[in-house]
């Protein structure tokens, strides 16, 4: 399996990008070229130079230092929020699918519909007014918003799988419903879940950006890619690179996860075995 994975181009590139982002995030915990929180009004909005590799922002802070420190937040938001949504959502979706048409199924799906009816950011704001602002609470809020997305997809995919004869065969073999879900249904819906997870990962980073912009996500002076991007809007005319770098960072991380997800889906599919 590992051997197969290492020959899959998109998996390898995706893994390389993701690992790089991860390493940078770890590195930033111990070392940054400048103190990312140090404000120097005299050196505000500088273009990239030898001392400030990616220039400085409107407070004269070093953009490169903020960016690599922000990587940690971005990964945390993406991975944990998607993880919350994935684990709870998939469990709910599969439970709903096993009781298709039952009250439980109806209940779960109507609650999902209800959450869908609210705009994502509005839901998150609502949750945050209860939990209070901050990165951890923002992650939880985004995670909760992800639950119905995965519940819906998992239910649909599970229903398709459960109509197949091999599920009947497993029941005839005497396997219990939880056993069937774990052994047959889950492995057969992972592909579709992985692809959705990489999409949600990108959305989670952007959602965090929105929340930070509103002041209820990552709290200053902790840097966040999303807030950097949002803050740069005001200075777009004077310092266009200010928007470029956090934007590129988000795009790169998202690209890495998408490629990793695509590759993982193929690698996990036995059909990609030797032809």
């Amino acid at each position: 399996m590992i051997h197969r994975a290492l020959r899959h181009p998109s998996f390898v590139v995706g893994l390389a990008i993701t690992l790089m982002v991860l390493l940078i995030a770890i590195l930033a915990v111990f070392w940054t070229p400048h103190d990312p929180t140090a404000i120097r009004i005299s050196a505000r909005l500088r273009p990239p130079s030898a001392t400030n590799w990616l220039g400085t922002d409107q407070f004269g802070r070093d953009v490169f230092s903020m960016l690599i420190l922000g990587a940690r937040n971005a990964l945390l938001v993406g991975i944990v929020a998607v993880g919350i949504g994935l684990s709870i959502g998939v469990a709910l979706g599969m439970v709903a699918a096993t009781g298709e048409g039952s009250l439980l199924d109806e209940g779960i799906m109507r609650v999902c519909d209800f959450t869908f009816a609210f705009p994502a950011v509005l839901t998150a704001i609502l949750i945050l007014t209860f939990l209070g602002p901050g990165l951890v609470n923002a992650i939880i809020a985004i995670g909760i918003f992800n639950i119905p997305v995965f519940a819906r997809i998992a239910r649909g995919a599970a229903l398709q799988v459960m109509a197949r004869d091999y599920i009947r065969a497993a029941r005839a073999a005497g396997r219990s419903t939880p056993g069937i879900l774990a052994r047959h249904v889950l492995p057969n819906i992972t592909g579709i879940l992985i692809v959705q997870a990489s999409v949600q990962f990108a959305l989670a980073i952007l959602a965090e950006a929105g929340l930070s912009y509103l002041g209820i996500g990552t709290q200053p002076p902790n840097p966040s890619w999303g807030r950097m991007l949002n803050d740069s809007q005001t200075f777009l005319a004077q310092a266009p690179t200010l928007a470029l770098f956090p934007g590129a960072a988000i795009a790169l991380a998202v690209l890495g996860f998408n490629m990793l997800g695509d590759g993982l889906r193929d690698v996990l599919d036995p059909k990609s075995l030797e032809r």
Binding site: R175, S176, N188
Partner: peptide, 23 residues
Amino acid sequence: LRARRHGIQMVFQDPYGSLDPRM
């Protein structure tokens, strides 16, 4: 019921749908 299932088994029509592709 599960404990008695080994005594009765079934063969299905569609050989493409009756085997789990991931197993």
